[in-house]
Design a protein around this nucleic acid. Structure first.
Length: 417
RNA sequence: GUGAGUGUAGCUCAAUUGGUUAGAGCACUGGACUGUGGCUCCAGGGGUUGUGGGUUCAAGUCCCACCAUUCACCCCA
């Protein structure tokens, strides 16, 4: 049996890796500009972190985690997301003791056991950012602004920001009661999943896509009308700061997100051209998360975006990525002088010239053909005559012209660039 | 976890109601052009038709199972 990559995983190969490098470099550039600093947490954590952090009524925890026992019988889980880990690290290293607010970002693989489809894999990659240690609504907006800035620098415009507030443990229960009261005589119209949600997590009924549930909740009460004073003011401030920065958004009363830790601000970015999996990113505030995983009360807000989905959306929008596989120079040589040519290649590289050659090719013709295919502008040809006279033949592949030059002159040609 | 579709060369696809040695284009290698790429022409290599079983004189084609993959549900990035 031939061994292939596990279901839902993918090899990222050289023709595509430039997209990753490019996007990653822009993320790092913006994050650095906004004073977010990279944090790298473990790929696996104790299962309990996610059970308590994300919430054990969520689908992510219930049916999508890669969980196993290690050799000492400890329950380990491959991270399905990174926010819980970052908050855990923040508490573990007592970073609140450092005095300020922590601003972090990350890029890395996440794991969820799901049936793969367009824009959905079992191992996928997220980039994300967190501001931990403040309740200030400006933090919420800074996160959204940073996200937008990344898109802007990538030339990506085909997206929409949806925003809502999901309240807090003080006001949400009131709304949930209101919602249940409203849905009481519509209970039979709900799908089986939503009947369970009615009892366990009624908010989730709002984002069910089924026709019956949609109709049942069509004129349901809106959570923003039931927010407590603190949540209400927070939401208003977030919206006013967004307006001040000219960030376009859409209030969506159905937006609730699938992770239990969210409080107050919840937002999502959806993009065109992604099929059914149209969320390129999402985030929100999680003021209760730190307490949930055993720390003191430390507020936070964050965002996570899917790398694969972003690449899909960018490709769909026709955005081009810079190539990184073009050489400055190709060295073509006759077999009789291969040692001299081989040495020259490394002298060139030492001078910073990105020089390459055709491995395993024999004829001049085949070597030139490869240079042509690789899109190289200059080629140097070496044979016995060149070695004897200590001279090189330089060929410009665009014009087809050739001329004789010395090695020194060759270095000079690439010095200016 | 549920449903539907698709598996033929590295890639994109052909192959009559089941019929003889499974083809083409692109790509690859070489030649025409003994040290000069792109264009053209010629030649060549490359397949256990996803795997296993069944029906049949005969299976790429029909049936079953499994595997992979795609899309959708679900969920989310």
């Amino acid at each position: 049996m031939k061994i292939v990559a596990p279901k839902g995983t993918r090899d990222i190969l050289p023709p595509e890796i430039n997209k990753w490098h490019y996007i990653e470099s822009i993320i790092r550039e913006v994050m650095n500009l906004y004073s977010f600093y990279e944090i790298r947490t473990p790929i696996f954590e104790y299962t309990e972190l996610f059970q308590r952090g994300i919430g054990d009524t969520t689908d992510i925890v219930n049916k999508e985690m890669y969980t196993f026992l290690d050799k000492k019988g400890r329950s380990i889980t491959l991270r399905p997301e990174n926010t819980a880990s970052v908050v855990r690290a923040y508490i573990e290293h007592k970073m609140y003791g450092l005095g300020g607010v922590g601003k972090f970002y990350y890029i890395g693989p996440m794991f969820r056991y799901e049936r793969p489809q367009a824009g959905r894999q079992r191992q996928f990659h997220q980039y994300g950012m967190e501001i931990i240690g403040t309740k200030d609504p400006k933090a919420d907006v800074e996160i959204i602004k940073a996200t937008e800035e990344i898109y802007k620098r990538l030339g990506f415009t085909d997206y929409k920001i949806l925003i809502n507030s999901v309240g807090c443990p003080k006001c949400r229960p009131y709304y949930e009661e209101e919602l249940k009261l409203y849905l009481k005589d519509k209970y039979d119209q709900l799908c089986d999943d939503c009947k369970v949600r009615y009892h366990k997590n009624p908010l989730r009924i709002l984002d069910c896509k089924r026709e019956g549930c949609r109709r049942a909740t069509e004129s349901a009460p809106k959570i923003i009308d039931y927010l407590c004073e603190e949540c209400k003011i927070h939401f208003e401030k977030v919206l006013s700061y967004l307006d001040a920065l000219n960030i376009k958004y859409e209030i969506n009363h159905r937006l609730v997100r699938g992770l239990d830790y969210y409080t107050k601000t919840a937002f999502e970015v959806i993009a065109g051209g992604l099929g059914a999996q149209d969320a390129v990113g999402g985030g929100g505030r999680y003021d209760g998360l730190a307490q949930e995983i055993g720390g003191k009360e430390i507020p936070g807000v964050g965002f996570a975006g899917g790398m694969e989905r972003l690449i899909l959306a960018l490709s769909h929008a026709g955005i081009e990525f810079p190539r990184e596989d073009i050489q400055d120079l190709f060295v073509v040589f006759r077999e009789e002088v291969e040692k001299e040519a081989f040495a020259l290649i490394f002298r060139l590289r030492e001078k910073g010239v990105k020089a390459d050659y055709a491995l395993g090719k024999k004829s001049i013709k085949a070597q030139l053909k490869e240079a042509d295919k690789k899109g190289v502008k200059y080629v140097v040809i070496i044979g016995e005559e060149e070695v004897e006279k200590k001279i090189l033949t330089l060929k410009n592949m665009e014009t087809g012209e050739g001329k004789k030059i010395t090695e020194k002159e060759l270095y000079k040609l690439f010095e200016k660039e």
